Amino acid sequence: MLRPRAASAALINSGADLLAGGGMNAAVNAADAGTGAGAQSTANDQTYHLWAAQSGSAVRLNIGSHVDAKGWNLNLGFARQKASERNTLTYGPFVEYGHGNYDSYLDDGTHGDGTASYIGAGVMAKSAAESGSYIEGSVRVGRAKSDYTGDIAGRHAGYDMSSTYYAAHIGIGQEKKLGNGTIETYAKYFYTHQNGGSERLTSGDLYDFDDVDSHRLRVGARYTKQNGTGGSFYTGLAYEYEFDGDARVSYAGYSTPTPTLKGGTGILELGYRFARPGSNVSYGLNLMGMTGKCRAITGSLQVNWAL
């Protein structure tokens, strides 16, 4: 029964990954297109431009036995830019939503399943210098829900739970020209906190769920090459380590076995971005594979409009 909390935390984390990857790119591209869209635009265009990013994933979490989860995430926001002599700042608000379902399996063959979802809002910002260095960040807050049906302590039972979550990320990076392309190196830190609480199961038992905190550090490199007019292809490698991610639960004062997201994951990504010349709409596609603590295949689509 602890697996739903781990699955819910992983779903919220995948929303952070979407925002720090495709969402941030979509926001910057939308603001860029807006500042260059017409004669009335300026380097400090005060108009917010609409952007959207979504992703789907199939994930196996090795958390002491395992959880198989499928999920979908969405970011929708507005971004604008302010430029100075050496830096360009992109910032704006956004809303986020995620929904998924999961199956949990214990080593003794016990099986359970359920759903998880979240909805929230936040703000993002990215400051890029002429030298190619940048710093980015975001803060998010929202409400997460999860449910579970399966065998608990030898009896068939279930529960529904909702809690508040808080999340933030900060990243730094450097882009440099390399041959006919650009290489980017980066480091990003992600933090997520999901409140705990007490829930009564359908069996009548009362369980106490602790808060779940996730601390992740990701370092990596990405190579991007222009491919014709308006298109670019990129590929990258990264390594991520989760420092916490324990989902503790107690019953009648006794702790139950604790699943954890703690551990390392290797990441390979491929992607393509396209903007038709003269169009106010651009697109991005991304495919990411993970192995290690988290084994996953995720795909995302980003769309941005300069309105």
Results as ranks from 00 to 15, higher is better:
residue 59 V to N: 07
residue 60 R to C: 01
residue 48 Y to L: 13
residue 43 A to R: 15
residue 74 L to I: 01
residue 67 V to Q: 09
residue 72 W to Y: 13
residue 58 A to K: 15
residue 54 Q to K: 09
residue 51 W to N: 03
residue 69 A to S: 14
residue 72 W to E: 03
residue 62 N to C: 03
residue 49 H to N: 12
residue 57 S to H: 08
residue 68 D to L: 09
residue 64 G to P: 06
residue 47 T to Y: 08
residue 80 R to I: 11
residue 50 L to G: 02
residue 60 R to A: 05
residue 76 L to D: 03
residue 71 G to A: 07
residue 74 L to C: 01
residue 73 N to I: 01
residue 60 R to V: 13
residue 73 N to D: 13
residue 67 V to C: 08
residue 58 A to N: 13
residue 54 Q to N: 07
residue 63 I to D: 11
residue 45 D to R: 14
residue 80 R to D: 10
residue 78 F to L: 15
residue 47 T to M: 02
residue 59 V to E: 07
residue 46 Q to G: 09
residue 51 W to D: 07
residue 76 L to E: 04
residue 59 V to A: 03
residue 46 Q to T: 14
residue 51 W to V: 00
residue 57 S to D: 14
residue 61 L to K: 02
residue 79 A to L: 07
residue 75 N to F: 11
residue 70 K to M: 03
residue 63 I to K: 00
residue 49 H to G: 01
residue 79 A to R: 08
residue 73 N to P: 00
residue 42 T to S: 13
residue 76 L to R: 00
residue 54 Q to I: 00
residue 74 L to W: 06
residue 59 V to L: 03
residue 44 N to L: 08
residue 63 I to R: 01
residue 70 K to Y: 09
residue 74 L to R: 02
residue 53 A to Y: 10
residue 56 G to L: 01
residue 68 D to Q: 13
residue 72 W to I: 05
residue 64 G to C: 08
residue 75 N to P: 00
residue 54 Q to T: 02
residue 51 W to I: 01
